[in-house]
Amino acid sequence: MRVVVCAKQIPDPATEYKLEPDSHWLVRPGEQVLDDTDRYGVEMGLQLAQAAGGTVTLVSMGPTGTMQGIRQALAMGADKAIVVDDPELRGSDALLTARVLAAVISREGFDLVIAGTESTDGYSGVVPQMVAEFLDVPALTYATSVQVGDGSVTIHRQTNTGYEVVEASLPAVVSVTAGVVEPRYPTFKGIMEAKKKPVETHTLADLGIPAEIGQKVTTVTAAASRVAGAKIEDDGEAYLKIVELLAQRKVI
């Protein structure tokens, strides 16, 4: 089974995110990390490929930089990576991103594409569905569990009131929630091997896709902010302050 995992490199969420002054694009340092959201996709892909016998290929769009995030995913066990890096893709919207990912995926060939439900830095939450449409396959979305059978895939799809069991034939796209599986930590051996795994790099011209972006950020302004109230250290009696405030607000 050919499993493709869409995985994104993002600025380390532990650092403060900044925007570039005129374009308002997110500042992306040379060293980016694997989006935590996509660690679940990588793990799911590895487990399914192992069970069915197959390969895991990473597909990623964005500035490659030091490739740290890609290497993280390779160190977990993915076989190879295909990266699309082109200055014209800066400020890309979900549509162009999905077009690019789908073009790479269909060139490569696939049985199952796995993505996260939403990325940490962009959180448009529509890229997997768009990729599925470009590939003309179903998108089984918001999966909390995934099972691959003979030519078909079945998921538990998270809903507002519980879950649905959804089934489709392969090939398909599946988007997974955080928590679908427990991502492994790369082993030392994995990290060493990752350094030698193949990483293909493409530009937009290689894919024959025009750099059309249908949106722009025009302004960024400070939001009206809340003013914090009293902060008190619990001395064993702090609960009384809560009771008092609840009474004031007529909750009790």
Partner: peptide, 10 residues
């Protein structure tokens, strides 16, 4: 081939 079915709802 883009079709998917909801077979159970919980």
């Amino acid at each position: 081939r883009a079709d998917a079915r909801v077979i159970e709802t919980h």
